[in-house]
């Protein structure tokens, strides 16, 4: 297991370096003078221009600048936002819990609905129920989620007035951040009104963000279970006279879950990408909205740092999924 872990970590290093190269290239590929952005509309006189170029290291050769960049990144220095003048890492850390809360809620929604739907479809194969699940999951998989969000807002917020349109919590509540996850922080503060407000704000964005993972999980659970049900050991279990519930729930599901876990892990990237759209639509103050705002404000250090950090999160989660996979399935661990 240790060897597996080391091997997997070793693979991570070149990928991480590659992502830093992309993030680095981002700033340097943008046509024009890098100082123009800093200077704003007033402009800079040539002497100051030269001095700033030197101070910021832009007069160094590219490879030198890249090495300096890597050095800074390793020390946790991801630059300073041009707009807020805050370190990019701090901004990311402040906003990340909002995205984490939204993603967790979305994943919970997707798993809680997707797993049972997939199991039911597989068990009732070929029935109306099965076809319904397949149809809905294909539609969900093809859904432009930004449109889906608008439809849900139209129905639940505009027509029915059940849920608020934007934000994480109503303005009248102030909750001291402890974990950064509002659902937990409001409960810790014992403020149930605030908790209800936070839940009402969370529901629609979570459904929107969870839609594609839901479709993928339902589909994968169904096909994985159908695959397993055909195996001999299931026939044996049935022949032994075990109840259908036990055969499916214990014997079949345990093996069927292996590919499902992988798929759930792979959805993290989808979730973070989807968060960009979902957060923009619901004015959810997380990293997705922050990235888009930064691009629109041409705040390139923030974009650069943000991309690097999001990619790092995805890589870490993929690593965790791989390790988990190795734990569930010994065949993977000993494969090499």
């Amino acid at each position: 297991m240790l060897l597996f872990l080391l091997r997997r970590l070793g693979l991570l290093v070149p990928t991480f370096l590659g992502v830093t190269a992309i993030a680095f290239a981002l700033i340097h590929l943008i046509p024009g003078d890098p100082l123009e952005l800093l200077a704003g509309e007033r402009g800079i006189d040539p002497e100051r221009h030269a001095r700033m170029l030197h101070e910021l290291g832009f007069d160094q050769p590219l490879w030198r600048q890249y090495l300096d960049y890597i050095g800074a990144v390793v020390q946790g220095n991801l630059g300073t936002s041009l707009i807020t003048r805050q370190p990019v890492l701090d901004e990311f850390m402040t906003l990340f819990p909002a995205t984490l809360e939204l993603s967790l809620a979305a994943m919970l929604f997707a798993v809680l609905l997707g797993l049972p739907a997939g199991i039911l479809a597989a068990v009732k194969r070929g029935t109306v129920l099965d076809h319904t699940v397949i149809g809905i999951s294909l539609t969900g998989y093809s859904m432009p989620i930004f449109w889906w969000a608008l439809l849900l807002i139209l129905l639940f917020s505009v027509q029915l007035g059940w849920t608020p349109v934007s934000g994480r919590i109503a303005v009248e509540f102030y909750i001291e951040p402890v974990t950064g996850l509002l659902l937990i922080d409001t409960l810790l503060a014992g403020d149930y009104e605030a908790f209800r407000s936070a839940v009402r704000h969370l529901i629609l964005p979570a459904i929107v963000l969870g839609t594609i993972p839901l479709a993928v999980i339902a589909r994968m659970t169904r096909s994985a279970l159908l695959e397993v049900i055909r195996e001999d050991y299931i026939r044996v279990a049935r022949a032994k006279g075990l109840s259908p519930l036990r055969v499916i729930g214990v014997h079949a599901l345990r093996n069927a879950l292996i590919p499902v876990v992988t798929v759930i892990g792979l959805q993290v990237g989808t979730l973070l990408a989807g968060a960009i759209l979902t957060e923009t639509l619901f004015a959810w103050p997380g990293i997705g909205k922050w990235l888009i705002d930064s691009i629109n404000r041409r705040d390139y250090p923030a974009v650069q740092g943000g991309i690097l950090l999001v990619a790092s999160v995805v890589m870490l989660v993929n690593l965790l999924v791989d390790l988990l996979y190795g734990l569930i399935n010994p065949r993977i661990r000993h494969a090499h």
């Binding site: 990928t15 981002l26 990408a273 989807g274 960009i276 759209l277 990235l291 974009v303 990619a311 995805v314």
Partner: peptide, 21 residues
Amino acid sequence: RLMDILLALPSLLLAIAIVAV
């Protein structure tokens, strides 16, 4: 390895980064 790097980034995020450039 280059493909692995591209895969490490969520697709929409990478597309946004490229468009930003």
